[in-house]
Design a protein around this nucleic acid. Structure first.
Ligand code: SF4
Ligand code: SF4
Lengths: 152, 152
DNA sequence: AAATATCCGACTTCCCAGGTCCGATTTCAG
DNA sequence: CTGAAATCGGACCTGGGAAGTCGGATATTT
């Protein structure tokens, strides 16, 4: 319930790792997987997905690997989750494929849709950079802080 | 991924329904279930749970049923979800029972924990009353509006 | 040509959300 | 005091999706 997919989790970790190593031209899936203990093959697929949606740039062959396609602060957590897990919906009434049977009679889907928007907003306001730049003692770059509107 | 449980969903619907019928002393699980097309037995268990956590007051026997234990605006969506689905966690590292294997090496659990807090905050700021009082044209009671802080 | 990568689909395993069934108990009405 | 209507509580079944695995094809460097 309301739990993040591990794949998305892994995706975030990997992106953060890449963001922390801007010097290297490319890091292989195995590199990242080893760094954290993530199943390599699984991470591989996650990264492939991220590549296909344009968040990463890949390069096959020796010394190949992945690199961020854009600046770390231009990539939001929302994009990552969306890329890996597909459309973001809190409820089961996606109106896309397998909608909830009682969508017509349901009276809370509109308010919940707004909650959905709010949470999406939270995720959109978080960038990979925000995740990465944290460890560093607590210097000048001040912590990322934002306000999210909630309107029912 | 990041999806609300249907049980919680049902719970919210039921509470809203109860909030909309303050006149009646008690409504049976079947009443509510019929009103929306929810599987009665399932709704029953959800309501039982809500009763056990003190959000509802139950009364067995004929003309029995459930009623809100507190005022509708004193019951948050968060409480409902927590009551039904248990502890609220975005990630799999609950440190309770089945923690994620790579918790030690993971570097994003702290930031994600803050995201978790933020989302919990959003949910806490929503009351059953907010859900219920919506239909009514759009009168004086102005829509519920709030700001949620996000600090990484 | 060999080593190192990404790429991609198919496959298996396991867990749990969603739902059902049934029996026990409480309460009230006639 | 008997039966109907309700809450209780547990055990149980089932489908689908998350998590992970395998194997083969392709691209790139040395
Ligand atoms: S329709 Fe109502 S019940 Fe069905 S999923 Fe959307 S919100 Fe939950
Ligand atoms: S530890 Fe890191 S990876 Fe494991 S669940 Fe918590 S956040 Fe996701």
């Amino acid at each position: 319930m309301l739990k993040l997919t591990k794949k998305a989790d892994y995706g975030l970790m990997a992106l953060k790792y890449l963001a922390e190593h801007p010097e290297t031209p490319a890091l292989s899936a195995k590199d990242v997987a080893d760094a954290y203990g993530i199943p390599p093959q699984l991470l591989a697929k996650v990264l492939q997905r991220l590549t296909k949606t344009g968040l990463l740039r890949s390069h096959a062959g020796m010394n190949g690997g992945y690199a961020l396609a854009r600046d770390a602060r231009e990539i939001s957590a929302f994009e990552v989750i969306h890329a890996i897990d597909g459309p973001f919906f809190i409820t089961s009434c996606t109106k896309g494929t397998k909608s909830c049977e009682l969508t017509p009679s349901c009276t809370i889907k509109e308010p919940l849709a707004r909650v959905n928007e709010t949470i999406a907003g939270v995720l959109k306001s978080i960038s990979i950079h925000d995740l990465a730049e944290r460890e560093h003692p607590a210097g000048k770059s001040g912590e990322h802080q934002g306000l999210v509107e909630l309107t029912l």
